[in-house]
Design a protein around this nucleic acid. Structure first.
Lengths: 130, 130
DNA sequence: CTTGACCTTCCAGCGACTGGAGGCCCTATC
DNA sequence: GATAGGGCCTCCAGTCGCTGGAAGGTCAAG
């Protein structure tokens, strides 16, 4: 398979796939013309990476996950720990965003949104007081 | 005031303040020794920026917000529109993170987390099937 | 033989800082 | 007057995960 094919099948842009090769996540073969030549196993890895990235794992997490995936002697505890840590980070981010959402939502509601200059949003930003 | 003082008062690192000057958000004076010399108005702007950033506004949004703040003839509708658009982006992000959280949470729960290699987290990443 | 789609590499840029090197300035103490 | 320590300066590079674009080779169809 050429890069375009795998890109389609894995649902990742060619650029991203080249990047993943650059940083050593995959090592496709090379055709005589210099084109990358992808095996089924490469496609499989790329799909794995796509799903892991979609769950928000960092590239380094993905590297570790791939290594664990390919290690028959892994302990599921290691995978779980990684996933749990990532989950915690996501929950932190959600909490942070929820806090912003709450404040912003209040501010937006309190703003008339008309032609006049008076604006509680700007007042809040200016003074920190509601 | 020197940069250390405003940094403390505004709750922003000196590096960030220099960066804000670099990109033209503030323009402190200069002392004869080359040190930045901050007026009350600079501190006020920095505090404004700090709060806007804490609400997740991008730097470009902050630039616009500052301009609106300093424009007596603004329409509060413009501020509200900006804030509303930002709020929508935040809500999108929250939705995306919630979706990750949900999937991840299920996966983590379903993983034994012991010495054995069997791991539903990896299976899911490998196949996309639960 | 040409066109156009595909592939290659390499370099630069995104956002919002952050770290570090190398060096000047200021104050206090000896 | 020398020195130590802290604060300030500029400039460059790195972060993360791509993404865009330039310049050029390759391939299949007409």
């Amino acid at each position: 398979m050429n890069i375009g094919d795998v890109a389609q099948k894995a649902g990742l842009p060619p650029k991203t796939i080249r990047y993943y090769e650059d940083i050593g996540l995959i090592t496709p073969l090379r055709d005589t013309n210099g084109y990358r030549l992808f095996r089924e196993s490469d496609l499989h890895k790329l799909a794995f990476l796509g799903r892991a990235r979609a769950l928000g794992f960092t590239i380094e997490d993905c590297r570790t996950l791939l290594a664990l995936y390919e290690d028959d002697t892994r302990a599921s505890a290691d995978v779980k720990e990684l996933a749990q840590a990532h989950l915690s980070k996501i929950e932190d981010k959600i909490a942070q965003l929820e806090s912003m959402r709450s404040t912003l939502s209040d501010l937006v509601k309190s703003c008339a949104g008309d032609n006049r200059p008076d604006c509680p949003i700007l007042s809040d930003l200016a003074t920190g007081q509601h």
